[in-house]
Computed example of a mutant assay.
Amino acid sequence: MKLYIYDHCPFCVKARMIFGLKDLPVELVVMLNDDEATPKKLIGQKMAPILMKDDGSCMPESLEIVNYVDNSDRKPLLTGKTNPAISDWLRHINGYLNKLLLPRIAQASFAEFATPEARRYFKDKKEASAGRFDELKLHAEGYIKNVNDDLRKLDKLIVKPNAVNGELSMDDIHLFPVLRSLTLISGIDYPSRVADYRDNMAKQTQINLLSSIAV
């Protein structure tokens, strides 16, 4: 199978996670951010991730991909209970996180920005919806303080480093991509349980963190 992705994209990380957790082979194809032709040819619109199955048919939507792959062998891994407190935490931090992340994503050395045109495409699209990046950067210090405060709250919710609620569940699929994205940001203070969980999930899912390109 092939998985068409952007490396920075948390939805793409969700789809990638299930392959790593189940130790299943998948060919990752990183699309240029301004490549509209490829996704439109595969599914009729520009979005990611896109799973191309072995029969050549294509499936969009990260959670549908996760569910399909997890149940394809009739031995699902994501059987644990979810915790409403994790959903509440994610809803809260996602309310402001892009204002901190987007300007940094636009600067970072992701494969989807291999050409100046692809990087400019991302910047123009995101600034149109989120605001000018130079203005967002002025508030970065305050956003980082909010993140550090919120991570201390998350630390109390983590049950085990290999599964946030003690057994793998959809909460892990939603939580790890956010924590991975945060590794792109310098100046974040990670409480011990958050750091252990983040690092353990990176190993389990076979997905690299972004610390090496942090800005």
Rank of each mutant, 00 (worst) to 15 (best):
N94P: 06
D149A: 10
I144D: 06
I86N: 01
R104N: 08
P103R: 05
K160T: 03
K153H: 02
L168A: 06
L209Q: 13
I86S: 00
L51H: 07
P161L: 08
K153C: 02
M47R: 14
R104S: 04
P191M: 05
C12M: 00
G44C: 05
L157Q: 13
S87M: 11
D55P: 08
T38L: 11
A118F: 09
K153P: 00
M59E: 08
A130L: 14
L179G: 03
T38G: 04
D196H: 14
L97G: 11
P191S: 03
I144P: 08
V194M: 02
L42N: 12
D171T: 01
N71S: 08
L136C: 15
I213S: 11
S72L: 05
W89G: 00
W89L: 07
D55C: 15
S62E: 12
K160Q: 15
E61L: 08
K203I: 07
R74T: 01
V29F: 04
I185Y: 06
L24F: 03
S169D: 07
V29W: 09
L179E: 09
M201H: 09
L151C: 06
R198H: 11
A140D: 15
S57C: 12
R193S: 07
L179Q: 03
L21M: 14
L179S: 08
T183G: 00
V29H: 13
Y4I: 13
G80I: 01
F11E: 06
S72A: 02
D155H: 09
K22L: 02
N33Y: 15
N71E: 04
I213A: 13
L210F: 13
C58A: 12
L97S: 15
A85Y: 10
T205G: 11
S181F: 06
L97D: 14
Y121F: 14
Q204R: 15
G44K: 04
F19E: 10
R132F: 09
A85C: 06
V147W: 04
D155F: 05
S72W: 03
R104Q: 11
A202W: 09
L32C: 01
S212P: 01
E135H: 12
I5W: 10
F122I: 11
E167L: 15
C9A: 13
R91L: 15
S57P: 11
L184D: 09
I207D: 07
N208F: 13
N146G: 12
V13H: 04
E127A: 12
K203L: 13
C12D: 05
G187I: 00
D172A: 06
F19T: 01
V147D: 12
N162G: 02
K137R: 05
H92Y: 12
N148F: 12
P60V: 07
A15W: 13
I5N: 01
K145C: 03
Y96P: 12
E117Y: 02
P177W: 03
N94V: 11
K123F: 00
I86C: 05
F176R: 00
L24R: 11
T205K: 02
K125D: 10
L157R: 06
N162W: 06
Y197W: 14
T82A: 06
D55R: 01
I5T: 14
N162L: 01
Y96G: 10
G187K: 10
I5H: 10
S192A: 15
N208T: 14
N94W: 03
